[in-house]
């Protein structure tokens, strides 16, 4: 694990005041919107890199302070970093939808790591959706659904399907949200 400079984040609450349609129309698909896609793509890459490098301070700086489930998400990520050595997270099959101030991306992931204490090779996979929202000029992650790649996993293979996962009560809301 390495550290990075603390970033003082004072983001607005997630539910922002409704924006007039006229303002949206003026800004629809402007260069700023296209820039947002680049920014969010870079943000996903940073999340993955910080997780792989174990830099949880930088990782947390990219998470919205008002994200519902913030504690559980960060706790899971910190535990994973402590237990999984040399994690490699690969993303593929990305699809996305967007508005001018929010993006949802869905992807399939595969994670490979060496499990302590024997450094045994492990692999797990899943489907996840990440949600991002623009806060002033920067973007922050506001939610995650599906299989969380930033959590501890058991060795389940690169094409795992775990039916039990689908009926776990805590995942009621995620069951058919790919």
């Amino acid at each position: 694990m390495i550290a990075s400079a603390p970033l003082l984040v004072t983001a607005a609450p997630l539910a922002k005041p409704a924006e007039p349609v006229s303002a949206k129309a003026e800004r629809a698909a402007t260069e700023a919107e296209r820039q947002s896609q680049r920014d969010v793509a870079a943000l996903v890459k940073q999340l993955v890199q910080h997780f792989e490098q174990g830099d949880m301070t930088a990782f947390e700086n990219l998470i919205h302070p008002a994200m519902v489930g913030h504690v559980a998400f960060m706790r899971a990520a910190r535990e994973a970093v402590a237990a999984e050595k040399q994690p490699r997270l690969q993303l593929k099959d990305i699809t996305f939808s967007q508005t001018e101030d929010a993006e949802h991306i869905r992807f399939r992931w595969e994670k490979r790591w060496l499990a302590l204490p024997a450094l045994a090779p492990q692999v797990a996979s899943g489907d996840a959706t990440f949600h991002f929202r623009r806060e002033d000029k920067s973007w922050l992650m506001t939610g995650q659904a599906g299989d969380n790649p930033f959590a501890r996993h058991k060795n389940s293979g690169p094409n795992s399907t775990d039916p039990f996962d689908e009926v776990r009560p805590s995942r009621l809301n995620h069951r058919t949200f790919p």
Partner: peptide, 28 residues
């Protein structure tokens, strides 16, 4: 600059808020 919040999501709450995990009760 201050921030604070309170979230209470019932364990059986299911909506189209895709990324809201059911069962969370938290404040910050």
């Amino acid at each position: 600059a201050f921030r604070g919040g309170w979230h209470d999501v019932g364990p059986l709450f299911v909506s189209l808020a895709q990324a809201v995990p059911p069962g969370v009760r938290e404040h910050y």
